[in-house]
Each structure stands twice: as structure tokens, then as C-alpha cells.
Measured scan of single mutants.
Amino acid sequence: GHYRIRINGREFEIRGISEEEIRHLEEALRNGADEKILKEIVDRLRG
């Protein structure tokens, strides 16, 4: 998958993330885990 997200007015492209991972992120966001989720995304993109 290849997705664009906007955070604090800046747009980011996220590549190589699966539909299942996105559902997991959405679930966590609904549970209020904003900073933790951003850290997970950044860590994943770093490799």
C-alpha cells in the first residue's frame, strides 16, 4: 500500500504498509494513542 497522511499541516507519504496495519493504527487512534502511533509509524519507516 501507498498512502498520504497529513500531520500538523505537513503531508507525508507512507509506503509499504498493509491494510491490516492500517486497521490496527485506526483502532489505536480511536483509543487515543496519538503520540505512540506516530512513533510506531516513524520507527517503521526508519526500517
Rank of each mutant, 00 (worst) to 15 (best):
K36N: 11
D34E: 10
R46S: 14
E20K: 08
D43W: 02
K36W: 10
G1N: 08
A28I: 13
G47Q: 11
Y3A: 02
E40R: 07
K39L: 15
G47E: 12
N31I: 09
K36A: 12
L29D: 01
V42L: 09
E26M: 12
G47L: 14
N8P: 00
G47N: 11
S18Y: 03
G16D: 09
R10E: 15
G47T: 08
A28S: 07
I17A: 14
N8F: 13
I5P: 00
S18N: 06
Y3V: 04
R46F: 15
A28K: 07
R23W: 09
E35D: 12
L38I: 12
D43E: 10
L45I: 13
L25D: 00
H2P: 06
L38P: 01
E19N: 09
R4M: 08
R44T: 08
G9C: 04
E20N: 08
D34C: 06
H2L: 05
R44P: 02
I37M: 10
R23A: 13
I37W: 09
E19G: 08
Y3S: 01
L38G: 01
E26R: 06
E19Q: 12
S18T: 13
I14Q: 00
R4A: 02
G32E: 04
L25Q: 00
H2N: 13
G32C: 10
L45S: 03
E40K: 08
E40N: 08
N31L: 10
I7N: 00
R15G: 03
N31R: 09
I22N: 01
L45K: 02
R15C: 09
L38E: 01
E35H: 11
A33P: 07
L45P: 02
F12W: 12
E11Q: 04
H2M: 08
I5Y: 03
R15S: 06
D43Y: 04
H24G: 12
N8M: 07
R46Q: 15
L38F: 07
I7H: 02
S18E: 03
E27M: 14
E21G: 11
R10P: 00
R4V: 14
G1T: 04
Y3M: 10
E20A: 11
L45D: 02
E13I: 15
I14E: 00
Y3L: 12
H2A: 12
L38W: 07
G32N: 08
R4G: 02
R23S: 09
A33N: 06
R44H: 07
D43C: 15
G16W: 08
N8D: 05
G47W: 05
E35F: 14
G1Y: 10
I7V: 05
N31Q: 08
I14H: 00
G1S: 04
N31F: 10
E13M: 09
Y3E: 01
V42N: 03
R6I: 15
G16S: 06
R15Q: 07
E35I: 11
E20S: 10
E20R: 06
R15E: 04
K36S: 10
E21T: 06
E11V: 15
E27Y: 12
I41S: 02
R4P: 02
G32V: 06
R6T: 14
E21S: 08
N8Q: 05
E27H: 13
I5N: 01
E21F: 07
K36G: 08
L38R: 02
Y3W: 08
I37E: 11
E19C: 07
